[in-house]
Amino acid sequence: MREFQSLAEAQTLALAIADTLPEPFLVLDDKLHVLAASRCFYAVFMEDPEQSHGRSLFEIGNGHWDIPGLRKLLEAVVPQQTSVEGFEFEQNFQHLGKRTVQLNAHPIHDPSDSSRMVLVSIRDITDRRLIEQEKERLLEHSEELLEQQKTLLREMRHRIANSLQIIASILLLKAGSVASEETKNELRDAHQRVMSVAAVQSHLHEVEGIEHIDVGAYLTKLGAGLASSMISPKQNIKIAVVADDGTLSTSEAVSLGLIVTELVINAIKYAFPGDRKSPRIRVTFETDQSNWKLTVSDNGTGRRQIESVKSSRGLGTALITALAKQLEAQISEVSSTKGLTVEISRATFVSKLSQAA
């Protein structure tokens, strides 16, 4: 570019450039007087071009631009060759009302260094700030609602757990008062089913979970509960739980817990007739991404006269079949004189134990 021949020529060029810009722009001299302004500046801030030209920026617009922090920054632009980036302020403009303005300023000079000027760009960001404030307000409100929801869920889980405990206690009391041994056993079984659901609720309350729970911790707690309530000292049956790290949704955990309850109760009742050396029940849970396998095995006498899981019409078996279908899982079993193993597996799960073998 050719050099400016005079200060007047530089100012004329600055005026021509500024006048065509579609946003509010100002060209100030080194004393911060208005040399030129875009038409947009005059239109937006409703200033008179004749009254504004040649006057200090801090004098025009009834002193709206005379802000101590802004004055200090602009006065350093030319002598120190610095820039002002994103200076933001609120001002109550006479014709516009309260607006939020963002201002940038950069030094400019001609090649001969005979004329030094400041280019000022102005942006009205009022609407943007209002939108951001509204988003922030909505976010805070959403967080408050979420916290309220968590509180309600905690309270609901606590009440459900208490209600289940009451129901289980009633069933157990009723079992102790009836004469029929068959009815007594059915009531005890119903008690354990309720307790398996209560264990989920109790576990959720302890870990502050909402949607997912730790399967290993839950099954371990459930196994301990079944051992303490279903196994008499004479039976001396040991229940061991081994589970991979992982979580399941609350609904899946409830279904899984009911299945474990049914299978463990069946093993306690039927797997160890008479004296059986070192009777034990083992519950394992293996995971592989979204797939999993639950195994309940014992070292008892096998199924023998007990009907197959698939063909039995008992309440427990029907419940296991329905729950497995709900979980989109398959049931399989292996029975021998060395015991019974029942597997509930989802989809394409391949046991790590089988691979090792």
Score class of each variant (00 low, 15 high):
residue 183 T to V: 12
residue 251 S to M: 01
residue 261 T to Y: 04
residue 213 I to Y: 02
residue 257 G to N: 04
residue 242 V to I: 00
residue 150 K to H: 11
residue 221 K to I: 03
residue 126 T to Y: 02
residue 40 C to D: 09
residue 63 G to E: 05
residue 110 D to K: 11
residue 277 K to S: 13
residue 219 L to C: 01
residue 163 S to N: 10
residue 142 S to Q: 15
residue 183 T to A: 11
residue 229 S to F: 03
residue 83 S to H: 03
residue 134 E to M: 13
residue 152 L to N: 02
residue 320 I to S: 14
residue 33 H to I: 07
residue 307 E to R: 15
residue 16 A to L: 15
residue 85 E to H: 13
residue 277 K to L: 12
residue 155 E to R: 12
residue 4 F to K: 06
residue 106 H to L: 13
residue 243 A to D: 02
residue 189 D to E: 14
residue 218 Y to V: 03
residue 145 L to R: 14
residue 195 M to E: 14
residue 226 L to T: 03
residue 279 P to F: 06
residue 209 G to T: 06
residue 215 V to D: 04
residue 104 N to G: 07
residue 337 T to N: 08
residue 38 S to G: 15
residue 186 E to W: 04
residue 49 P to M: 05
residue 319 L to D: 02
residue 316 G to K: 13
residue 131 I to V: 11
residue 350 V to E: 08
residue 181 E to Y: 07
residue 255 S to Y: 01
residue 254 V to E: 00
residue 191 H to W: 04
residue 195 M to I: 14
residue 303 R to D: 02
residue 346 R to D: 01
residue 136 E to V: 11
residue 103 L to M: 07
residue 139 L to T: 08
residue 62 N to T: 07
residue 153 L to G: 13
residue 237 I to S: 08
residue 17 I to L: 14
residue 12 T to P: 06
residue 337 T to L: 13
residue 120 V to S: 04
residue 30 D to F: 06
residue 40 C to V: 14
residue 223 G to Y: 04
residue 295 T to S: 11
residue 194 V to L: 06
residue 133 Q to Y: 06
residue 127 D to A: 15
residue 88 E to W: 05
residue 327 L to E: 06
residue 54 G to C: 10
residue 325 K to F: 00
residue 109 H to V: 06
residue 80 Q to I: 00
residue 35 L to W: 07
residue 25 F to Q: 14
residue 121 S to Q: 08
residue 260 V to H: 02
residue 230 M to K: 10
